[in-house]
Nucleic acid binder design. Structure first.
Lengths: 242, 242
DNA sequence: AGACCAATGTGGTCAGACCAATTTGGTCTG
DNA sequence: CAGACCAAATTGGTCTGACCACATTGGTCT
């Protein structure tokens, strides 16, 4: 890892864990350069990164910590990675958003009235419901489905948001894979419902089936968290939940 | 505007308007420095910006142009600004996404079962339906409503996405304000429906009323586009639509 | 013709300096 | 004593020039 990445990571972690209060001034670039035994250029690059993440506001006179709701979408990945395991609440929120985006994309795709598009859509769903998948392949298939839906929607903003979110979310959730209870029967049933709704071009049914799938996925993820925490040292009891 | 901003803007514009093909190599930093009569540091900063926007991939050996669907959400603002007026299609897509986010946020807020939250929510909606607003104030009120809903949702990813989108979207849409046909009667009716749905905690009604409001807003925006184009030189006829 | 290799060009990093603007701390004034 | 004021120190912003490791390129050798 290069110097500026190291500095940026340390500072990002410090800010996101509350080492610096919101509004507080960060040390000057020269101080940080001395502390990290780095060139000021390296510190500058790191600070630029913080600014891009929207967690610090750099101005002549000093850099200050911004509140989290001023941040860029790109902080999500860092937020998930800051602790030993991601926050259950944040993970659930992300799943909610992804569901909203997928539904928006599917509906947009359906409203384009393009038969080829619809066939493509059903094709990316089929692997989920028809084949005998293990959990690993299921995740891959689901991700492919998401990407396919996004592309079919033709809605660029949705595509960009979903890509950013999935790119940050996926890697951080890898640790849960071994703890998720496979339930391919239900998965397949949910996927069939989605496929049927698509075939019928029934918007309400599409919404309904995707919502149900998302709800199941969210519950399953929370159960995976339970399993993970049960088989791991619950850390120190102090402040482990915040 | 500082040098690196000028360079970044020019390069961003060139890339987004297709002056460079996807996959094509950009000129080297030293070449660009010579072309813009700048030092390499300024060019480097500009290139960093392109990389952050997700429109260029910088690697030892050279920087290459990325396809648009690899970009960051932050390109939206640049995409809207690249042409004389924003693309109608993109604007509509953004409105669709914002509606999806708002609905997600409202539902999340409602499901928190927090009476104070709900009261706050209704308060941010009230100005839209009760007062005699001109169009300008209506926009402000609507934006306030969005922000209030986002905050009330407690869903950080939704907040961050909406903030990013609105920050990029708002300024670029200012040019349309004078061409939007005011229809405060309908606006008020739609807002009252939203308020009633919230008061009843009826999720389906909430979805329905917000969808209708969004639909009306989208149509009104497209009509504003018509009015704008009617009163502006339709540019040269060649390739004006692409 | 293909494999190989050296020269060139590329981005990545660093060091040091200067500038304009802000911040800061003391001083002066009421 | 409080507030306005000013000068010195500090801050981020910019620029110059140089070196490095690696990718690309073009020629050479087999």
């Amino acid at each position: 890892m290069s110097k500026h990445e190291e500095i940026a990571q340390t500072l990002t972690r410090d800010i996101l864990t509350g080492q610096y209060r919101v509004g507080e001034r960060l040390p000057s670039e020269r101080d940080l350069a001395a502390r990290f035994d780095a060139n000021r250029g390296a510190v500058r690059e790191a600070m630029k990164k913080l600014e891009q993440l929207g967690i610090a506001d750099i101005q002549p006179g000093g850099a200050r910590v911004l509140p989290l709701n001023e941040a860029s979408l790109d902080v999500i990945g860092h937020l998930l990675a800051v602790r030993d395991e991601p926050s259950r609440e944040l993970v659930d929120q992300i799943l909610v958003v992804i569901n909203a985006l997928v539904q928006t994309a599917v509906i947009a795709a359906l409203q384009r009235q393009d038969q080829d598009m619809l066939d493509t859509l059903r094709e990316v769903i089929r692997p989920i419901c028809s084949e005998q998948l293990d959990l690993e392949s299921f995740y891959d298939a689901q991700t492919s489905m998401f990407r396919g839906v996004m592309e079919a929607s033709g809605n660029l903003p949705v595509q960009l948001i979903a890509k950013s979110l999935l790119d940050q979310f996926g890697p951080q959730m890898a640790f849960l894979r071994d703890y998720a209870v496979p339930d391919m029967t239900t998965h397949r049933a949910l996927a069939r419902a989605m496929d049927a709704a698509l075939a019928a071009r029934d918007l309400d049914a599409v919404r309904q089936s995707f919502s149900e799938s998302s709800k199941f996925h969210r519950e399953r993820t929370q159960r995976a968290f339970d399993a993970y925490e049960a088989s791991h040292p619950p850390a120190r009891l102090e402040a482990s939940a915040s």
